[in-house]
């Protein structure tokens, strides 16, 4: 079996203790995925596993065996930015930039969750066909990703901007 990372196949690590985070950063040198706590509290290590957001520090690399991982490097490049990446720059949704890849990966999956009708703690009408993506809904759904520089307003503005573009 192999772990597909950004479309490329890699063998699982020999040491079963290796987290998906450490596989990405230390073995594959995909250092866009960040480590902020190594205990699932900050969200900096968020990546997409089969298109769903996971905390790569709490995911053993072997759990990704046979599955597909997308990291920030797989979303876009400086020459061809993902719409969220461009919006983060435009709305100044970061300062030091360390939590940023996790925020962008989480936002990518979060918008998919909304499109699929998954409710949040703030969703009032669980039976509604469509989620109305209010500012508070985005804030609640992004609260697993900490930012210490205080770029919260810019992050939410950037996500709402992109969500707005894709609204029917």
């Amino acid at each position: 079996m192999t772990i597909k990372v950004n479309g490329q196949d890699f063998p699982p690590p020999d040491d079963a203790r290796v987290s998906l985070l450490d596989l990405l950063r230390e073995q594959l040198h995909l250092t866009g995925t960040k480590v902020g706590c190594n205990q699932g509290a900050c969200g900096a290590c968020t990546v997409l596993l089969d298109s769903r957001r996971v905390l790569s520090c709490l995911t053993l690399a072997v759990q990704a065996d046979g599955r597909s991982v997308t990291t920030i490097e797989g979303l876009g490049t400086a020459e061809a930015l993902h719409p969220l990446q461009a919006a983060f720059i435009e709305h100044d949704g970061f300062q030091c930039g360390y939590c940023t890849p996790g925020q962008i990966c989480a936002a990518t999956a979060m918008l998919e969750e909304v499109a699929a009708g998954m409710p949040s703690y703030l969703t009032v009408d669980l039976a509604a066909d469509r989620i109305t993506l209010s500012r508070e809904e985005v804030q609640e759904r992004m609260s697993g990703n900490l930012c210490r520089c205080g770029a919260h307003n810019g992050i939410i503005d950037a996500i709402l901007d992109v969500a707005g573009e894709h609204r029917p």
Partner: peptide, 16 residues
């Protein structure tokens, strides 16, 4: 002005 290091930071290319 937007940050000059913005593209590096949002793509994960900034090397910490």
């Amino acid at each position: 002005a937007s940050r000059l290091d913005g593209p590096l930071k949002v793509t994960g290319e900034a090397r910490f």
